[in-house]
Design a protein around this nucleic acid. Structure first.
Ligand SMILES: [Mn+2]
Ligand SMILES: [Mn+2]
Ligand SMILES: [Zn+2]
Ligand SMILES: [Zn+2]
Lengths: 143, 143
DNA sequence: TACATGATGATAATAATTATCAGTATCACG
DNA sequence: CGTGATACTGATAATTATTATCATCATGTA
């Protein structure tokens, strides 16, 4: 398989720990797991894992485009399975309750790309985060 | 003035510290200052200030819509002067070098609003963050 | 199988932020 | 203008997320 090559040609080793971290995040596709949440989930299958390994592994898997990092501004870094171009998505984040909604990437288009171009940004890889009030929170108090 | 009312009717007091924090952030409009950067700048005018006061004051001024909080995913919370609707702006953030570019809000429009509507988000107050590679970083290595 | 070295777990160290608490300053009231 | 109730402050301890260290272990190649 390709994964093994990808690791080996960089002198990296495929360890039990790395495999289980991948499995756990992929199993929870749709969620945005924090490092410590991933730590807890991995422990269920591999109780000996150390927290430091989690913190080493996640950025590594991100660099290898096996995971994506996302910060929801709640004080910790989160991860989700890497989505190939066809299934890219963006995020709507409620600044009050923290709810996260996902949006298919292809709903975004011309306008952002224009903005990105106008500002000397690459249109190849980008991600959008929209902050606002979800319907529930918008109703509660008049923003 | 209106500020005094806004404070008093909530039982809040206008202190020297709060005034100077406001002044400092407003003086640096266009930048996105971290709490500790603000701490250092405030000390120039009011050397006795305590760091705890900074951390208490900033969220308070944000809640009063005098400042805006922004997280650039570099491990700390940042603030900028609150921008009234007419001068709202959004942010482009380079995921590699961390450079931040500002975009006039009215360049964004139909498409985001549609997305927001489709996802039961309020169109009243929202902010966009675009993550990508700035021109320089996009050239350096082929992403 | 053996070994070179990359990876791990335990733990100490940082960095940002929050909680405590005794002393201080603000402001409504007289 | 005092004065007092109490909101606010500075110092500092405590938390939380993350990073650095280092001795030991395990992977993959020869
Ligand atoms: Mn997602
Ligand atoms: Mn800005
Ligand atoms: Zn909400
Ligand atoms: Zn860049």
């Amino acid at each position: 398989m390709k994964l093994k090559e990808q690791f080996n040609q960089k002198g990296l080793r495929i360890t039990k720990q790395r495999q289980i971290v991948m499995e756990v995040v992929e199993k929870h596709k749709g969620r945005h797991l924090s490092s410590s949440e991933i730590f807890e989930l991995v422990k269920e299958n591999y109780s000996g894992i150390g927290l430091a390994t989690i913190y080493r592994t996640l950025p590594l898997l991100e660099k290898m485009k096996l995971l994506s990092k996302i910060c929801l501004d709640d004080g910790c870094v989160r991860y989700e399975p890497y989505a190939p171009k066809e299934q890219e998505h963006h995020h709507l984040i409620c600044v009050k309750c923290g709810a996260v909604y996902e949006v298919e990437a292809d709903l975004l288009g011309i306008e952002e790309k224009q903005i990105i171009m106008n500002n000397h940004f690459s249109t190849q890889n980008y991600m959008v985060k929209l902050y606002g009030y979800c319907k529930t929170c918008a109703e509660e108090d008049v923003v």
